[in-house]
Design a protein around this nucleic acid. Structure first.
Lengths: 268, 268
DNA sequence: AAACTGATGTACGTTAACGAACATAGAGCA
DNA sequence: TGCTCTATGTTCGTTAACGTACATCAGTTT
């Protein structure tokens, strides 16, 4: 049940803050463990906390009348949950589900609002992150319209692999179907095809990434597009980032999510 | 070729500013005429102006590798084009096309940035608008995945009707296919069906809305959802809005786009 | 009036999904 | 060990799209 984590890690957004702002910010955070399949938000509910995953990750699933729903964002250590608060609203229209068990920093909404007022750097950084999310959402909308299930599945596995720091992803076909807005049978077929091509292997509730490069080839280029977007918009900000020396796991700069880096592959 | 406009109108966002801020803001704007099918932005280009349509409207179409593209936003007098600048970025990933001929207020990017710094009210208002766009984009993503062409077409016609202030919409099947990301034939069939049901009528390049209520019934509820979102997020802000007494067309409060208002239907 | 251009109509076979139902098989529990 | 969930595998016919091709028709131009 326990993942074997490859790299303990910090949250990239927090890490990108100037040291002084970050110290202050972290002082207002608490570290929480997110449990697999935990629900930390429902449509209509007001947000109570802002989450900055470190080695956990969560997905936002938009419900839609008479259908299963569709994932509209996947948030790991490269991002945050609660962008609406940055924009002055604390409502949510989505289910918020823990996809990957692990730790996150979180802050209650009121404190977060205060931090935002205090730190221009935080404001600017999160504004950019919001723009990234907007672009990625546009990408997802188009992707969902045009690309076949197998490509979309490959894309999702890659995105998740980036955030999981493990080759083993804990998820069932049933749930993947929910996320991608297709039938379970559709996932079984697509996953079977990817397995036959030796890109992944799976057994009851666990999918193992075997060949990252192969998966990239099998996915639509929306995966690449998303990373490029992230890098284009947040790249320069993340350049300046420093290492958090708080009480969290220590980590080196390389470990932090850096899109389009030509760094070492995580698979194998 | 000329639309017969029903109501001259102001932009709701600008109208919602406190009088003082609005005066200052309008002083930095220029009024421009947007011509049908004009392209005012391309993917990769930096934005040069922010647009606040009054009786014009524009659509943002996201290109996607190997496919025709997909509309990711429709902006009329209820909104603005250039939200990325509010978030600190002036790039664009979409085609920006004039769908409805008419006037818009616009401001160059540098001035706009200055105004943003000066007016807290402007900032807050536009942040909320950005959140609306985000929610509507989520809606569109899910809608595009699950709903059939005929429902999606009906939805689009309603959205456009709201922004056009005319029952005659100038658009071809070919172009609608581009917007909705389907084949032209698919539009011809769907439009034919709506026409047979006496909800619309059309001839070469012009679609006439005959029965708004009927169209609402024929569309997916995404149309309603979008309006509800707009109202929930921006409603209270728009309550305070006052009439612009600048050199634009004069207008009454009722004429301004107010989602979920139980006001008079525009059709007939 | 004739010719031309672009918009719309219709028809073909093809495909990637769909919904539903049932079969098999792992994992944990009694 | 066997029982019971739950996850995965497979099959059925159905459907809403798809790509392509060609026919018709309405404005506009010559």
């Amino acid at each position: 049940m326990e993942h074997e984590k490859r790299v303990p890690i910090n949250n990239s957004l927090i890490a990108a803050l100037p040291q002084k702002d970050r110290r202050h910010f972290l002082a207002g955070c608490e570290k929480v463990k997110l449990v697999l399949s935990e629900v930390i938000g429902e449509p209509g509910e007001a947000l109570r906390h802002i989450y900055f995953p470190t080695d956990s990750f969560i997905s936002l699933v938009r419900p839609i009348q008479g259908h299963t729903g569709l994932e509209v964002a996947l948030v790991g250590n490269e991002g945050m949950h609660g962008i609406s608060v940055v924009l002055g609203i604390d409502s949510s229209y989505s289910h918020v589900l823990v996809q990957g068990e692990g730790l996150a920093m979180r802050m209650d909404v009121a404190s977060f609002r205060r931090e935002l007022r205090l730190s221009q750097a935080l404001q600017q950084l999160l504004n950019r992150y919001i723009y990234v999310r907007l672009c990625q959402l546009e990408q997802t909308a188009a992707c969902t319209r045009f690309h076949v299930v197998e490509e979309r599945l490959a894309r999702w596995l890659l995105m998740t692999h980036d955030r999981a720091f493990s080759d083993e992803l804990h998820i069932t076909h049933e749930f993947l179907a929910f996320i991608l807005g297709v039938r379970r049978v559709g996932i079984t077929r697509a996953a079977g095809s990817l397995q036959k091509r030796n890109l992944i292997s799976y057994r009851r509730g666990i999918i193992t990434v075997l060949d990252r490069r192969g998966l990239e080839a099998a996915s639509c280029n929306c995966y690449r597009a998303d990373r490029t977007t992230y890098d284009d918009i947040l790249g320069e900000k993340l350049q300046n980032m420093t290492i958090c020396e708080d009480d969290m796991h220590t980590t080196s700069n390389q470990d932090i999510f850096k899109p389009r880096s030509s760094g070492p592959e995580r698979a194998h």
